[in-house]
Amino acid sequence: MPSETPQAEVGPTGCPHRSGPHSAKGSLEKGSPEDKEAKEPLWIRPDAPSRCTWQLGRPASESPHHHTAPAKSPKILPDILKKIGDTPMVRINKIGKKFGLKCELLAKCEFFNAGGSVKDRISLRMIEDAERDGTLKPGDTIIEPTSGNTGIGLALAAAVRGYRCIIVMPEKMSSEKVDVLRALGAEIVRTPTNARFDSPESHVGVAWRLKNEIPNSHILDQYRNASNPLAHYDTTADEILQQCDGKLDMLVASVGTGGTITGIARKLKEKCPGCRIIGVDPEGSILAEPEELNQTEQTTYEVEGIGYDFIPTVLDRTVVDKWFKSNDEEAFTFARMLIAQEGLLCGGSAGSTVAVAVKAAQELQEGQRCVVILPDSVRNYMTKFLSDRWMLQKGFLKEEDLTEKKPWWWHLRVQELGLSAPLTVLPTITCGHTIEILREKGFDQAPVVDEAGVILGMVTLGNMLSSLLAGKVQPSDQVGKVIYKQFKQIRLTDTLGRLSHILEMDHFALVV
Rank of each mutant, 00 (worst) to 15 (best):
G148D: 03
Q222R: 02
G26Q: 04
V168F: 05
R196Y: 09
Y233R: 00
S217M: 01
P41S: 11
P41Q: 11
L181V: 06
N228I: 00
C103N: 01
N212W: 09
I143T: 03
G115T: 08
A24V: 15
K36C: 15
R161F: 05
P33G: 10
E239V: 00
I214F: 08
M169I: 10
S27V: 14
T150P: 03
S3T: 11
P6D: 10
I44Y: 11
E128L: 12
E213D: 13
T53P: 07
I95R: 03
K172A: 02
Y233I: 01
D129V: 09
I167P: 08
T135D: 04
A183N: 04
G11N: 10
D198A: 08
E9R: 09
G139Q: 03
D238A: 11
H218Q: 09
I143M: 07
I92L: 05
A195N: 08
C272R: 12
T53D: 09
L101F: 06
G185M: 00
K97A: 08
V206P: 04
N113Q: 05
P229S: 05
G14Y: 12
E62T: 05
G115M: 08
T191W: 01
G31N: 12
A69F: 15
T236M: 09
A130Y: 00
L136D: 00
N113F: 00
F112V: 02
M250W: 00
S227G: 05
E144D: 06
L248P: 12
W54C: 06
V118H: 11
K30T: 10
F197I: 07
A114P: 05
C275P: 02
V118T: 06
A48N: 11
P21F: 03
I261C: 09
D249W: 03
S73I: 12
T257M: 02
D129C: 06
N93A: 05
C272N: 05
S32I: 08
L124Q: 12
P74G: 08
H22G: 03
L101G: 00
R276W: 12
A157C: 09
I95Q: 00
R51P: 06
P6W: 03
Q243G: 02
Q222F: 02
K82I: 09
K177H: 02
V10I: 15
A265M: 04
R164G: 05
Q242K: 14
L136H: 00
L56I: 11
N216I: 07
D120P: 07
A69H: 08
K75A: 15
